[in-house]
Write a protein that binds this DNA or RNA. Structure first.
Length: 497
RNA sequence: GCCCCCAUCGUCUAGUGGCCUAGGACGCCGCCCUCUCACGGCGGUGGCAGGGGUUCAAAUCCCCUUGGGGGUACCA
């Protein structure tokens, strides 16, 4: 057992939405902390002043809450919470500067006056010569007077880290094992930009150290950055945390998951009718597995079973079909009351229900939800599938109407059904079934030959829950009225032909 | 270009040298249930990238090739 308390963090940069890849990283950090009774920190890496926005921070926090990833330290409703505040990098600039000063004082870093344009040209030139496009260190050994002269030219400076060309740097990764980098491959990278903000590779080290992060769990696109960071740790005599690099999430064409592949933001999945537990469960399986046979895990089980040892090394392709299946499982297994509550706002949104919902309506929606529960893959499916329960304006599937309704025997058959249904004292499923059976027997038809036309008449389509159930929910009055409407419609059409 | 990571069914994966004639899940196909569609049940299709080694024995270890991904920014 470890004696030090585990501390993990998720450190998104607020330049857009909470990406599913980011959500997966957050999930693993969160699960790891919860599994070991550690602390989960949320830190906002907003040092890119150009691209970071406040709205993006809100969207990310909202996504985190929706997914259920509660953080112990980080942004709170009234400012940052936690002993290592602030948790926004933009509010920690003085801290970074003090460490920059330390590096400068010890000659482990130096100011560089090359402009981005000059750097770009030299990089391209060396690439064209077939050389490594490394920074050429022309500012590495400037003397004070030279620096002043460059500054006098109006040049802005950045601070570069003086990296060693000797030896190698070893990344000891919990998932990948030892990864060795030749130090000669690393150049003197920028640690402080000319606008006074630190670069990622520097700030991440300072913060992870100061916030006492014990396990740095992140996407494996950061592997190549890790040796740079390790050199910073060493230059500042900080102890190294453990590193664990997660496999990336890819799109169906095996390239990095992006907009081209469909929805990538957590918000989109929420809006599309996915439930958070399903997304958590699915995301957990992207890079982690528990056994040869288990795939369904409640969030609590995920916490209990999650370990880094069972994280795989290979990249995972995001499979929407499997997510949909899993979401369907969660919808099927949730209490009907919850499904009802989740679906009400969507029905209001579609203007199928008023803003005020009374107990009777809620009860009715509950019945409908119950009839549709096994047929949903997303909550969004509910609206089109239940439309006819709420409005007489039926959208007819023309082909189905031609096939089932515009037949000579339909008016007579429907009139028999109408008469039978109208006379019922009670309008339960079994009562309705009696009427259908009677008509079917009388006409010498198969049950389906009676029911399917009714289905098309009532729902407009050939697909719905059991017919007796649908009619019972609709109620005697509406059922009879809808039948009457259809009988007229069919007669009119037949007389035309 | 250079550096790094990765490589089992279409997809997610189990597999840590003999238990593998390679297991599960999604998808797909078929059958059953059945008033349609779902659900559910049953069955099927389908894979160790290629080549060399090591070993009595390799999906499992090593090397090479190939393929994919990432990095090489005053983005994170």
């Amino acid at each position: 057992m470890t004696t030090t308390k585990i501390r993990t963090r998720f450190a998104p940069s607020p330049t857009g939405f909470l990406h599913v890849g980011g959500a997966r990283t957050a999930l693993f950090n969160w699960l790891y902390a919860r599994h070991y009774g550690g602390t989960f920190v949320l830190r906002i890496e907003d040092t890119d002043l150009e691209r970071s926005t406040e709205e993006s921070v809100d969207v990310i926090l909202e996504g985190m809450r929706w997914l259920g990833f509660d953080w112990d330290e980080g942004p709170g409703p009234d400012g940052d919470i936690g002993e290592f505040a602030p948790y926004f990098q933009s509010a920690r600039l003085d801290i970074y500067k003090s460490y920059i000063k330390k590096l400068l004082d010890e000659d482990k870093a130096y100011p560089c006056y090359c402009t981005p344009e000059e750097l770009r040209q030299r990089r391209e030139a060396s690439l064209a010569r077939g050389e490594d496009p490394k920074y050429d260190r022309r500012c590495a050994d400037l003397i004070q007077s030279e620096r002043e002269a460059l500054a006098l030219e109006g040049r802005e400076s950045v601070i570069r880290f003086r990296s060693s060309d000797e030896g190698s740097t070893v990344v000891n990764d919990l998932i990948h094992g030892e990864i060795i980098f030749d130090n000669a491959m690393l150049d003197d990278f920028v640690v402080l930009k000319s606008d006074g903000t630190p670069t990622y590779n520097f700030a991440v080290v300072i913060d992870d150290h100061l916030m006492e992060i014990t396990h740095v769990i992140r996407g494996d696109d950061h592997i190549s950055n890790t040796p740079r960071q390790i050199q910073v740790y060493e230059a500042l005599s900080f102890p190294l945390p453990e590193f664990a690099h997660l496999p990336m999430i890819l799109g169906s064409d095996k390239t990095r998951l992006s907009k081209r592949h469909g929805a990538t933001s957590v918000t989109e999945y929420r809006d599309a009718g996915f439930v958070p537990e399903a997304l958590d469960n699915y995301l957990a399986l992207l890079g982690w597995s528990f056994s040869a046979s288990d795939t369904l895990f409640t969030t609590q089980e995920l916490i209990e079973k999650f370990t880094l040892e069972r994280v795989s090394k290979n990249p995972a392709v995001f499979d929407m079909k499997k997510l949909e299946w899993m979401n369907g499982v969660y919808i099927r297994e949730m209490p009907i009351e919850r499904l009802t509550e989740l679906v009400l706002p969507r029905l209001q949104e579609a203007e199928l229900l008023p803003h005020e919902i009374d107990a009777e309506t809620r009860q009715r929606v509950k019945q409908i939800a119950s009839s549709l529960q096994s047929r949903l893959r997303t909550l969004a499916d509910f609206v089109p599938s239940s439309r006819y329960f709420f409005t007489d304006e039926i959208h007819y599937d023309e082909a189905a109407v031609d096939e089932f309704l515009y037949q000579d025997h339909i008016p007579e058959m429907f009139e028999m059904l109408h008469a039978g249904l109208k006379n019922l004292q009670a309008f339960g499923e079994s009562d309705i079934e009696q009427v259908f059976r009677g008509v079917q027997k009388h006409l010498g038809m198969k049950l389906g030959e009676v029911i399917q036309p009714v289905r098309v008449a009532i729902t407009g389509t050939r697909i719905s829950p059991g017919m007796y159930e649908v009619l019972a929910i609709l109620g005697q009055e509406r059922t009879c009225r809808l039948l009457e409407n259809v009988i007229t419609k069919v007669k009119t059409e037949l007389s035309k032909a």
